[in-house]
Design a protein around this nucleic acid. Structure first.
Lengths: 330, 330
DNA sequence: CATCAAATTGCAACCGGTTGCAAAAAAATT
DNA sequence: AATTTTTTTGCAACCGGTTGCAATTTGATG
């Protein structure tokens, strides 16, 4: 920097200003500096800038579900959206850890400008810990709570649960099952509440309620064994598409035809749900909207950290394919 | 920091030293400092440290294939391995861009300690650009070249191609097809070379050679249409599992039974390859080993940037499932 | 107890930028 | 042309650490 200043015949402040947008520099100075900078191959060091401004343009992206294809979209969108806005994602892999302590400290040490906690399984307290530590945070896919003190972007899981019940009712199913994700996941809990509640209201009988160990194909496959103990089940509402595919394969292996003998309703609408071999009817979660909104929100918080907690819920919709029987008369 | 020093009654150097391992501090001083630090909730700022040491503990992870499930493992392993060693991954999404220029500059500005370029589609020159810019770089899944000047960790794609040919020959296939990934991808080119060459040697006839637009289900599905123009094809070697699944569904949609009417050989062995609906026989790429090795190497380079370019190739093996007919007499 | 080597400590400069403030220059006004 | 206002510019302090060097302390040895 000093060299550039000398070559351009100006002060260090001047070169700093040419590379800071919004700063006051005359066209002539800027030109001189830019020429000198190009000649010397100079780029301002973001590290030094961060130190001086205490802004890093780094956004922490913490996730715990690296094995779910749904996260491919999440990573893709997060990274490209942040990039577009001149921010960089610093990836954090929880890998099983559920205590925020370690990670709050970590991200604080890196002085990230904000954090996006992208998980549907952790309690509100997790994201809260960042807030408390003074780091702007968004809980994406998080649990919606009326008295929120953290920004939440996601869906209304309880409503989606009842949507599932209505979907079954419309198609004339009577005896249905819930094959949820891990019982400790807030998303699963909320969907279960909505599903069971609305089923009751609509006169559906939920004859089995099981939970897969986690949001994976294998877990779904295993848990489906339990569901099939009740041979009268006509349709199963699954925790997510992955679980659902596992469950479908378990059902097929047991000789059941889909949707003739048993119906399946998934969740998320990942790419594979559209593959012929499964042709999953599923509740679509608008991941794209959710991510876009989260990024916009987190970037907004960097500018104005005092922004009061917002809850942004996006609507889900059922995507009709072939794993449930059709609505009668349509 | 100054406050900590005052509270502990020592100099700033002393507190710096207690938090730098390998530095010379007496037990008594360290204790005093640690107590003061805890009382004040002090953690050294990594940004400031980076500025002073010109080491950031940041590793750039650049990828261009965010939609492929194979990358779930990649991200998972990269992040957790780096984390374990006290490094942090800074994700970069190429999203279509193939010129390194912009990204080299970006990562230089962040002064990352090293870069892992994880892509099997880009030419050697891409990773090279980082090297030239003075950033330690590993090309993971990269093209192996004898006269390499960049570290490469991956597999021998050409050898894998010939392994595919042998796999077909063993099973008595005579007329086979290649349904590669994008023709511009180095991985595809090399596998094609190996496959076609060895097929000739073994007396297999490669009656069709097509390339999918990219490594996706859809592209595989479309390209399979072209392969099926030749109705005599007995088996297809696909660019990767995703393409293969698309191709299988296209074949099934055309009324072909797998493996009776037509056989399929995939590549990668992603999780879905093991799902009942596809039960893909595929060439397994040891992603775990590759990632572990890459991380080890990049961290090693941070310590010793002069390390001369190494090529680390890992063996692949065919995973037998149900999409090819069995080896006769086994 | 004196002597010398080894370990510990503090000083002060440095890493590479930003920014408030006052001075200087340029532009606008009378 | 003189005066006032606005825009540019440079100075110097600061962001929060690290580190070479010399001084001091500690410990070992004679």
């Amino acid at each position: 920097m000093k060299e550039v200043a000398e070559l351009a015949g100006v002060s260090r402040s001047a070169v700093s200003r040419t590379f800071t947008d919004g700063a006051s520099v005359s066209a002539r100075t800027r030109e001189k500096v830019e020429k000198a900078a190009k000649a010397l191959g100079y780029r301002p060091s973001l590290i030094a800038r961060s130190l001086a401004t205490s802004r890093t343009k780094l956004i922490g992206l913490v996730a715990n579900n690296f094995q779910n294809p749904a996260f491919l979209d999440v990573f893709d969108l997060f990274t490209s959206e942040l990039q577009k806005r001149g921010f960089r994602p610093l990836l954090v892999n929880l890998s099983g850890d559920t205590s925020p302590k370690k990670f709050v400290e970590l991200l604080k040490q890196y002085s990230v400008d904000g954090v996006i906690v992208a998980t549907s399984t952790l309690p509100t307290s997790f994201a809260n810990a960042f807030q408390t530590a003074g780091i702007p945070v968004i809980h994406t896919f998080g649990k919606y709570q009326a008295n929120a003190n953290v920004h939440v972007v996601g869906i209304d899981n309880e409503f989606c649960g009842s949507m599932a019940a209505r979907t079954f009712a419309e198609r004339g199913y009577k005896r249905v099952a819930l094959l949820g994700g891990p019982e400790s996941a807030t998303s699963t809990q909320d969907r279960a509440t909505g599903f069971v509640g609305t089923s009751k209201l609509l006169g559906l009988e939920v004859t089995k309620t099981c939970f897969a160990e986690n949001y994976t194909y294998q877990a779904g496959r295993v848990a489906m064994g339990e569901v099939m103990e009740d041979r009268s089940v006509e349709a199963v509402f699954c925790g997510d598409d992955l679980i659902c595919m596992g469950a479908m394969d378990a059902a097929r292996a047991a000789g059941k035809a889909i949707p003739e003998d048993i119906g399946f309703l998934g969740f998320n609408d990942i790419a594979m749900a559209g593959w012929d071999a499964y042709a999953l009817t599923t509740i679509r979660q608008p991941i794209r909207d959710i991510i876009m909104s989260s990024v916009e929100l987190v970037v907004g918080m960097v500018e104005n950290p005092e922004r009061s907690p917002e809850i942004r819920l996006f609507p889900c919709s059922v995507v009709e394919r072939g794993s449930l029987r059709p609505v009668p008369g349509s």
